[in-house]
Simulated scan of single mutants.
Amino acid sequence: MTTVAPDTGVGPLLRGWRVRRRLSQLELSLRAGSSARHISFIETGRARPSEDMVLRLAEHLDVPVRERNALLLAAGYAPQYAETPLDDPSMASLRTGLDRLLRGHEPYPALVVDGTYTVVAANRGITMLLEDLPEHLLAPPLNAMRITLHPEGLAPRIRNLRQWRGHLLDQMERQITLVRSRALRSLYDEVAAYPLPAGCRGQNDRDDGDHGSGRDHRVPYTYVALPLQVEHRGNVLSFVSSISTFNTPMDVTVAELAIETFLPADQATVAHLHSLVPGDR
């Protein structure tokens, strides 16, 4: 169990989540079957919530599982959600399912990451994209954000790096607002500070724009979603990505897993990837 007791009471923590969700005390009380007065007393420390009330409020505030444990600890109760290592025997069926999903997506890239973007599983499509990268970036534990944005990683190969980098940094910022993770904040600070490769320009960049931040969010109108455009063996491959998580997880490890699949955004990408698979049509 990696959850630690917070340095503040449950009331301020719950209030923080309520404010984050932009709910009034009355709105939350109606959803949770309580009263605005009782919610106010809990937030100010005048009333100690029951274990059931903590969990009920957390559910209606859509609090991440790891943070629900922190709320319980702050209220003086034992954590409810285990944090089982992915290599634990009890996780065998989950690992098998993930491996089957990743293999089924080939030859297109797909991977599974944890809450700090450590890669816990990947298919051959990902391995193909990482060809010829430096050993120090490929050494375990492999981190998806680090290997994508590092100037010796995929960054020089990404044609629309400014846009893709901006998308990834925004994604991390949203996560940081939801979880109190020093590791995630440290990773964000590290990758946000990486210098852009020399001559880096994102698609649709203008010569007179501000190219210092690397946060160009303009989306090419020819795509239905922001694509990842990456060079591979003299070809430019275009992908749109989809991220999936588990529904109603009861374990911290499972709750923080994310499955990212990359779908080809054009026929040229389809043809190139299938040409790399012997006997594939």
Rank of each mutant, 00 (worst) to 15 (best):
L187Q: 08
G104A: 11
P227H: 10
E27P: 02
S35I: 04
H272G: 02
L57C: 06
D280H: 15
T2F: 07
R31S: 10
A74P: 00
E231M: 14
A155P: 01
V240I: 14
D216H: 11
P156D: 13
A70N: 00
I147E: 02
L57F: 07
V119T: 04
Y117F: 13
V119I: 13
E173D: 14
V112H: 02
I39A: 03
T222D: 15
V224E: 14
I259R: 07
R100M: 15
R182I: 08
A36Q: 11
I39H: 01
A155C: 14
R22N: 13
L263Y: 11
G279H: 10
R124Y: 04
M145C: 15
F239Q: 00
L228H: 00
L30A: 14
N143V: 06
D7F: 09
T116H: 08
H105R: 09
A75D: 04
H167Y: 11
V179M: 07
V230I: 15
R157I: 03
P49W: 00
A183C: 08
M250T: 14
T44W: 01
A255F: 03
G45Y: 10
L57E: 03
P140H: 08
F262A: 06
E260V: 03
V10W: 03
E43M: 08
F246Q: 11
R218T: 14
Y77R: 06
A47W: 00
A75M: 05
V270G: 05
M145V: 03
V120F: 06
A74W: 07
V120G: 02
A271C: 09
G45R: 09
S275A: 15
E190F: 11
V113H: 01
V19I: 10
V224W: 04
L28W: 03
P134E: 12
T127Q: 14
A183K: 14
S34G: 05
P49N: 02
D52T: 14
R56D: 09
D189H: 11
T3D: 09
I147M: 04
P85M: 01
N160L: 08
I243P: 12
P107D: 04
A268W: 03
L94Q: 01
S34Y: 06
E152Y: 09
L13N: 01
T253L: 04
I259L: 13
D132R: 13
A144F: 12
G33C: 05
L161I: 01
G9D: 04
Q163A: 14
L169G: 08
H232A: 05
S238E: 11
V230M: 07
S181E: 12
R281N: 13
L28A: 09
D132C: 05
T3R: 07
A82P: 09
T127P: 09
N123H: 06
R162L: 07
R46N: 06
P107W: 02
E173A: 12
G97T: 05
L72Y: 00
H150I: 11
R68C: 00
R162M: 04
G166M: 07
G212V: 15
R124C: 06
S213W: 12
Y194W: 14
D216P: 01
Y221D: 14
A74N: 02
V19T: 08
L257T: 11
H274D: 10
D114N: 15
S34L: 07
T177P: 04
R185F: 10
S93I: 10
D99I: 00
T248L: 11
A122G: 00
M250D: 13
L129K: 02
G202Y: 00
E67M: 10
